Simulated scan of single mutants.
Amino acid sequence: MSPRIGLNFNELLKTAIQIVDNEGWDVLTISYLAKKLTIQPPSIYNHVKNLDELKNSIALYGIQQLYEELHSSICDQSKEAIFSLAFAYIHFARKHPGLYQSTLSSTHTVGDEYTVVATRILELIIEVLKPYDVNEIDQIHIVRGLRSILHGFVSLEDHDGFGINIPIDESIRYVLKHYMMNIVS
């Protein structure tokens, strides 16, 4: 392999993201990334300390992209905003399965940039819940439930877990509608 002139961190990150989105989070290794970039593995270490640092960079990029998708999906403060946000979440996971998986990683430390963005997502969801007039503790329960519902749909769909010929988005809307109805009752 000949060396890659002009390789930089952004190109490295872009290629790593393509790997995780197209082939899976667990496929990414320093050796495999080097092969995709047609460079020797030690060249990767000019840009990252190790695989964990690279995966943390992907996770940070992923959580930032997820926040942007969620934020841009909300156009008003009505009770329908939760549906827009939920479908933006699902859309992101469908479009970027590897990036989505990276956002679920637990290797991040409290206080880092990742946690700051994750907190912004939580604040965004709580803002969307304002029309439901629920207290702070209930908001946390609702956010956890909502995340569980959405992740459940994403995970099952990703593993071909829905075999009945009814559109999945209809099921998502149905479950969310009934979940949110129970919040206000």
Score class of each variant (00 low, 15 high):
Pro3Trp: 12
Ile5Val: 15
Ile5Arg: 15
Ile5Cys: 08
Leu7Gln: 11
Phe9Glu: 07
Asn10Arg: 11
Leu12Asn: 04
Leu13Thr: 05
Leu13Trp: 10
Thr15Trp: 04
Thr15Gln: 10
Ala16Arg: 03
Ile19Phe: 05
Ile19Gln: 11
Ile19Arg: 03
Asn22Asp: 10
Gly24Ile: 09
Leu28Asn: 06
Leu28Gly: 06
Ile30Lys: 01
Tyr32Met: 01
Leu33Tyr: 09
Lys35Ala: 09
Lys35Trp: 07
Leu37Cys: 07
Leu37Gln: 07
Asn46Gln: 11
His47Thr: 03
Val48Gly: 03
Asn50Ala: 04
Leu51Met: 05
Asp52Leu: 07
Asp52Glu: 13
Glu53Asn: 06
Asn56Glu: 09
Ile58Trp: 00
Ala59Pro: 05
Tyr61Val: 08
Gly62Met: 01
Gln65Ala: 10
Tyr67Arg: 04
Glu68Gln: 14
Glu68Val: 09
Glu68Trp: 03
Glu68Arg: 08
Glu68Ala: 13
Ile74Leu: 09
Ile74Glu: 05
Ile74His: 01
Asp76Asn: 14
Gln77Phe: 12
Gln77Lys: 15
Ser78Leu: 08
Glu80Ser: 12
Glu80Val: 03
Ile82Lys: 01
Ile82His: 00
Ser84Asn: 10
Leu85Pro: 00
Phe87Thr: 06
Tyr89Cys: 00
Tyr89Glu: 00
His91Asn: 15
His91Trp: 05
Ala93Ile: 08
Ala93Gln: 02
Arg94Gly: 08
Lys95Met: 11
Leu99Pro: 00
Tyr100Ser: 02
Gln101Tyr: 06
Thr103His: 01
His108Glu: 09
His108Ser: 13
Thr109Cys: 04
Thr109Tyr: 09
Val110Phe: 13
Gly111Tyr: 11
Gly111Trp: 06
Glu113Trp: 03
Thr115Gln: 14
Thr115Tyr: 11
Thr115Ser: 15
Val116Cys: 06
Val116Phe: 11
Val116Met: 12
Arg120His: 11
Ile121Glu: 02
Ile121Val: 14
Leu122Ser: 13
Ile125Leu: 06
Ile126Val: 10
Val128Arg: 06
Leu129His: 07
Lys130Ala: 10
Lys130Trp: 04
Asp133Gln: 15
Glu136Phe: 09
Glu136Gln: 13
Ile137Leu: 15
Asp138Glu: 13
Asp138Ile: 12
Asp138Gly: 02
His141Arg: 13
Ile142Leu: 08
Val143Trp: 00
Arg147Met: 10
Arg147Ile: 12
Ser148Cys: 07
Ser148Asn: 14
Ile149Cys: 01
Leu150Phe: 00
Leu150Gln: 03
His151Gly: 06
His151Phe: 12
His151Met: 06
His151Gln: 10
Leu156Ala: 14
Asp160Lys: 15
Asp160Phe: 14
Gly161Trp: 13
Ile164Ala: 09
Ile166Arg: 13
Pro167Asp: 15
Ile168Gly: 07
Ile168Gln: 08
Ile168Met: 07
Asp169His: 07
Glu170Asp: 15
Ser171Val: 12
Ser171Leu: 12
Met180His: 03
Met180Asp: 01
Ile183Pro: 03
Ile183Val: 08
